[in-house]
Design a protein around this nucleic acid. Sequence first.
DNA 1: ATGGGCACCTGGCTGC
DNA 2: TGCAGCCAGGTGCCCA
Length: 235
Amino acid sequence: MDARLPQMLAGQRVESVDRRAKYLLLRLTHGTVLWHLGMSGSLRIVPSDLPADAHDHIDLALTSGHTVRFNDPRRFGSVIYATGDPNAHPLLAKLAPEPFDAAFNVEYLWRRSRGRKVSIKQLIMNGQVVTGVGNIYASEVLFQSGIRPRRQASSLKRDEVERLVKSIRKVLSQAIRVGGTTLRDYVNPDGNPGYFRQKLFVYERADESCRNCTTVIRTFTQGQRSTYYCPTCQR
DNA sequence: ATGGGCACCTGGCTGC
DNA sequence: TGCAGCCAGGTGCCCA
């Protein structure tokens, strides 16, 4: 967090709240707050006199008497104040289309995957290719698509890219609908966990049997992140 | 331009 | 019981 944040935000009005990739955008009178929750961050509305708990790092005090409280045990979140067009900010400028944008389509992903030697899993986790696909959903998306995570991006056939685009949209929209995925401590702003965990087919299911074909789910490390897949359903 | 690896930080779990 | 070691939901940056 920028130490000058309190004085820069003081007295400004929150005009609207928006989102770009995993950044929350608080559009203020004179600028925009780019708020990323990292891996463990959460925002809750609390009464302004509620004492701070462990890992409560920032209070955004509103004239309504409510406080937006930022809790982030792992401190991987970030809060940045940007003046001018927030989409021109270096953190946002190079971001890929949102997965639900018309611009994210088969032709687009086909073009972006040609000539790419990275694994398809790392490609879809790259925010400059598509936003919103984190480590959990990358494994789930590739399972739904029937594609092995280690495949070179450029090796995908056109029909595989088609399945991938569909799966990215499907998995993300299902996850959003049920409030995300709680593995340990993630909670929604209302304090509830996300229920997508119950719908996971491969993530964190190593040595368990595939829910589609009963083959044992495998795991390995890819770019320092855990990957899970079914060797039978995914080719 | 691309790919690979590290860094940031804290807590929880496992195994000795 | 204590403690070292390892792992975790993200992504920006540096280097080859």
